[in-house]
Amino acid sequence: MTGLYNFFAPYASRAIVCAVALTLLEACAAHDPALTRSAPYDPYEESNRINHERNKRVDRAVLRPVADGYRAFMPDDLETGISNFATNLSLPGAMVNNALQGNGVGMTSDFYRFLINSTLGIGGIIDVATRLDMPAATDADFGQTLYTWGVHEGPYVELPLLGPSTSRAAAGRVVDMFTNPLGYVIEDPEIYYVAGARVSRALSGRGRYSESIDSVLYDSADSYAATRSLYLQNRRFKVGNGGSDAYLDPYDTIGSSTAGQTVRPAVSANFEDPYDQ
């Protein structure tokens, strides 16, 4: 009986994960808030604000001091190397998502970036690809894949510890725990080094952008509203691959000849003309 249980246990945990992801997705189905930039769709504001205050307390008590200490303790080059290593290992997951989105260009550019950085960049420690001016990493995630599949953004949520998100992005995060093929290849002790590198990368980020993050969290009139506004604008930019008009004019020769790398779609296509107001 226990043998049978052990056999099914991994599947049971996956079923729970799937159920969570589906519940989050259902929340996305009701409403498409991306239509209005000014009024965010935030029906859970009350509980979000509670999470926000908790997250701020955690940041003040733990994350910020640890990140500052980590940055002060680690030599800059080593810190960048660890962060690059973690970023490089996220590329296969992005490649899977690019494939799911039908984005062949992005998948190819991420593949070459992974190839170059893993070899010439000594396992990803040196970001040779950026120095060679190769196309930027796509950073594709499953939340973005859901966007290309037509799933609505859903309500804004602020998750405990993880911070700002949307229901769609949160569902994507859950699925992304399984989309990175390296997760199935890397064995037991090494997987903890990878996890450690990811934590280090997060600490580097908190430390490096310390002033900017502090100004949003601690100097804003309403840090919840400021975080929400910044997160949603940035997330929509990333999800739309650097622009809000997903459909490029096929007759636009200027746009298509240089597309992909340098000239990305306009970000202001959904903006209202302020001179009309």
Binding site: A221, Q233, N234, K238, G242
Partner: peptide, 23 residues
């Protein structure tokens, strides 16, 4: 009339911030 960094518009972000200050 606007500067947009990684999708974050200065004008729209400040509108949210000024709105909070006014509240």
């Amino acid at each position: 009339f606007d500067m947009v960094m990684e999708g974050i518009s200065l004008r729209l972000s400040e509108r949210s911030e000024i709105g909070s200050m006014l509240d």
